[in-house]
Nucleic acid binder design. Sequence first.
DNA 1: GAGCACTGC
Length: 731
Amino acid sequence: MEPVSKKPKTDEEEIVEDYEVEEYVPDNTLVELASGLTRLQTTADEGMKHEDGPNNMFNGKELSTKYFDILKVRRDLPVHVQRQQFLDTFHSTQIMVFVGETGSGKTTQIPQFVLFDDLPQLQGKMVACTQPRRVAAMSVAKRVADEMDVRLGEEVGYSIRFEDKTSPKTLLKYMTDGMLLREAMHDHNLSRYSCIILDEAHERTLATDILMGLIKQVAVRRPDLKIIVMSATLDAQKFQSYFNDAPLLAVPGRTHPVEIYYTPEFQRDYLESALRTVLQIHATEPEGDILLFLTGEEEIEDACRKLKLESDELTRESGCGPLKAYPLYGSLPPNQQQKIFDDAPPGGRKVIVSTNIAETSLTIDGIVYVVDTGFSKQKVYNPRIRVESLLVAPISKASAQQRAGRAGRTRPGKCFRLYTEDAFKKELNEQSYPEILRSNLASTVLELKKLGIDDLVHFDFMDPPAPETMMRALEELNYLTCLDDDGNLTELGRLASEFPLDPMLAVMLISSPDYYCSNEILSLTALLSVPNVFVRPNNDRKAADEAKNSFAHPDGDHLTLLNVYHAYRSDEAQADPNEWCYQNYLSLRSLQSADNVRAQLKRLMEKNGLELMSTPYEDRNYYTNIRKALTAGYFMQVAKKSSQGGKNSYTTVKDNQDVLIHPSSVLGQDSEWVIYNEFVLTTKNYIRTVTGIRPEWLLEIAPVYYDLDTFRKGDIKMSLERVYKKLEAKK
DNA sequence: GAGCACTGC
């Protein structure tokens, strides 16, 4: 392997390198095929004529029969009618907003309309179309490759976190919004693209929001760049005015009407009301499946049990057909998720009891009735105590509309809202709060800095986050020395931004070679970036806990996780990972995804000249070194045992919150000082994934943060003072 | 002695 330079290129060097305009020499055949077309001045008729063949304008090959079959269907889509109108608007402006309802064909057709007009094959450029989710990017790319009669990965490709299915031939690239953001960090002008289409912008993911702010700036620097912001809702005005009154084009969708029913009065117990409604639909409405929206796993499993009992009784008593209930939520194993697509029992129907996952991520055909409780779990961030938590909260009008729409995909349907019409009109927000207003922004701020945005205070966010949230993020990054005191990116910060990780995790990983344990920290970082690896089935808790205890390390949960990973990588486990995970109450899915993440992080470490090494296992410092490296990233998340309260009572350092160690922790011995991976606010204040550390490490590793003058008088300050004195005496 | 809505790099 080639030696890698430790010093990364500066931003300036990278931009210059990527923005150098080379003379592009297009393929002769392709030039001929596009003859007669003037770039960015074509008409719908010209585009259609070239679409009609006989040769494919983008690869020169003869078009297939299958292509023409699909073309017929495409020309029947609602967007097709407005192709000329689209081109007129596209030509008239640099940035446009496009509103296409579900079923309009916007995600598949608009990028193709652009290709026939923008002719990127003659420019050596690409058209990008972003999606919030990986599956969408993949499946749409596949569909469009078929429509264009090209091989997926050639002229049409996709790019997502663990897979880049593109080639030098690629002209149209579907990608996740996060992926485009990553690219922008190395190419601030997005110079590989002639047109960028932000699809599903109304979902307002963190990445979409940052991209919108960035693209608004890039548009000024690159007058040649075309931008289309696509959204599904009628919330388009906000996008228009944000993009300097960009012109708007709206295309109707193709869905079936859905009748909305409200309850006459407020429902005190939405769960009870939901079950009653489902059973009533089953007893009285014509055939068609039901989709019920609830908030979380436990509630859903509980509802499914109750529905089974009650519907069996209904079948016995009144002779209506069977009702089969299927739970649906994200952490459900894939084979069980798949079951929702099973046919309804003969003579009966199925009801799918789901979280928000069925609102956007998963589409189920055959749903005719939707029961909407009006609630979902939502992430909220409290910058004062720096805690993200999940709360059950009322949904927005936009969400309610989206849920109702799920009933009208195959034929006319009905939606039963378990709240009053008055509540809908007066109490629900128009839109859900965008993610950027509900998150810890440490990662985001680091990304923005890396994107070359120095003045964050004046950065033009569509919805600016609370100043306190920004301050917290800047402060955290400063303590991590990712930003200097003037808020500029440091060498460490530049390196940290290369990793798709929270800054604390990134710093821990980057520091790990200093503690001779980068291999182990690499594994641990991956494990901390995936969903919980421990499985604890409700009816099997005792056995699951015993299995977990067999991996336990007395110094805490991080080392326990590492034990799990090492056992999982052993020959014994790899012989039959499925069975091994089942026997040990571990999630194979999580462990496999940790493997993927680990491989990606390893590549990034090698690319950035970070050495991979281990302390020999026999060395008595093997575990100590790992715990020190943990401290290097997590010195801001430390708690000390309280003098009062139970054995699990701790107080967080600096902000003096009373917390309990989460009952899932294996931390055996009484550790006076612990670092924790997360603070969870549920019935009580818990710290979860906890490891014991030595207080002197804190003073050595993070002297600025542990400047005792900044500490409040009390037990913690006194203890640290004693530790300081001891350290001084040793010197 | 508890609980993980959903995405994404």
